[in-house]
């Protein structure tokens, strides 16, 4: 630090590099914790299953199997960063999925079907965002309306599952780009690209910083002259759009649209975001953390199926993990409040 203190103010300069790091990057701690848990899970599973777990095939499959959830979690991260919540994403995914399958079955060209799916998701997001921003409806309730609407519409489109024959859409899943035993599908690439774009937007654009500012203190953001209204609506539109995109990915993955898809998936997405270190009170968290959160979720799921345990354990373990993270976050927040 410069020795010449020109200022009149007693500067509270941190003394060690560690302290500097802490005062600058305290918000990253929960995400690091998620990363550590992920590593522990891998190491534990590897040790327990005697080397059968960390294989290129398994790890490639992790992304493939959870691509839809990665995309949902990205959209959810935007909303949660503004201190909102979007309960509609699972149903939006089901609605857009079945809608796409129906359109394709009717012979609509694939590009048009895909555009319709994405637009459908975004429109539901727009509805929720408008209710939240312009009618002061709590995000919880507004997105609840979105959930009802999307779920009902999914059944309106079709009461039963519709198979997808379109080779273009199926290609997203079947085409495997291989490097040795590693592989990635276009759906996986879409998921990673979504994360990359989101990280770019959140960290390097004014729009992204406005999202964080709103989550930090919405009133302040408004008084600072930021465009709070449009940014908040946009967060829900992004979440809805991601719902549509994951509908596409899931349809490609399962080769069919099914109106009962994604029941409770919004909870998985929220859990993944929270486990990834984003605070539900808004303003703190990273989209990369959400990616880690989804991987933690997916890894636990894989381990459970490897061990042949009942799937009901999945819900219990994710619940327990969520609890752990919430309690830890609560402790961190409580400590930082005490420091003030």
């Amino acid at each position: 630090m410069s020795a010449a203190m020109t200022g009149t103010v007693a500067a509270e300069r941190p003394t060690s590099t560690f302290q500097t790091f802490l005062s600058r990057r305290a918000g990253m701690m929960p995400t690091f914790a998620a990363l550590i848990i992920l590593v522990l899970l891998f190491v534990g599973a590897e040790a327990f299953l005697r080397g059968d777990f960390i294989t290129p095939g398994n790890i490639s499959a992790l992304l493939l199997d959870n691509a839809y959830l990665v995309i949902l979690a990205v959209g959810m991260t935007f909303v949660i960063l503004t201190a909102g919540i979007d309960l509609s994403v699972g149903s939006v995914m089901a609605f857009t999925g079945i809608l796409g399958a129906q359109l394709l079955a009717r012979g609509v060209p694939a590009w048009l079907a895909i555009v319709t799916m994405l637009a459908g998701g975004a429109v539901i997001g727009l509805l929720i965002g408008t209710l939240v921003q312009y009618f002061s409806v709590q995000p919880f309730i507004a997105s609840l309306a979105g959930l009802f609407l999307a779920r009902g519409l999914a059944y309106v489109v079709s009461l039963s599952s519709i198979k997808v024959e379109n080779t273009g859409v199926l290609w997203l899943q079947t085409n495997r780009i291989r490097v040795g035993d590693w592989y990635i599908t276009p759906t996986g690439l879409i998921a990673l690209l979504t994360v990359a774009v989101a990280a770019f937007v959140l960290h390097l654009t004014r729009f992204g910083r406005t999202i964080y500012a709103i989550g930090g203190n919405e009133q302040s953001a408004r008084l600072m002259g930021l465009d709070v209204g449009r940014t908040k609506v946009a967060a829900y539109v992004i979440s809805g759009f991601c719902g549509g995109l994951s509908g596409l990915v899931l349809t490609a993955y399962s080769g069919a649209g099914y109106p009962r898809n994604g029941i409770g998936t919004e909870l998985d997405a929220i859990a993944a975001v929270v486990i990834g270190g984003t605070l539900l009170t808004g303003g703190r968290g990273y989209v990369l953390g959400s990616l880690v959160g989804v991987f933690v979720y997916g890894t636990i799921k894989t381990i459970i199926s490897f061990m042949g345990a009942e799937q009901s354990w999945m819900q219990i373990i994710i619940g327990a993990l969520l609890l752990l993270f919430i309690v830890v976050q609560r402790a961190i927040v409580a400590r930082s409040e005490q420091r003030r």
Partner: peptide, 27 residues
């Protein structure tokens, strides 16, 4: 007692509760 937001606190049981119910009935 722990001061956790209600939405989050009850989300835990919402997620885990059905798993518990499935365990009780043996799936």
């Amino acid at each position: 007692a722990l001061g956790i937001q209600p939405i989050v606190a009850t989300l835990v049981l919402m997620l885990a509760g059905r798993g518990v119910a499935l365990l009780i009935t043996g799936g």
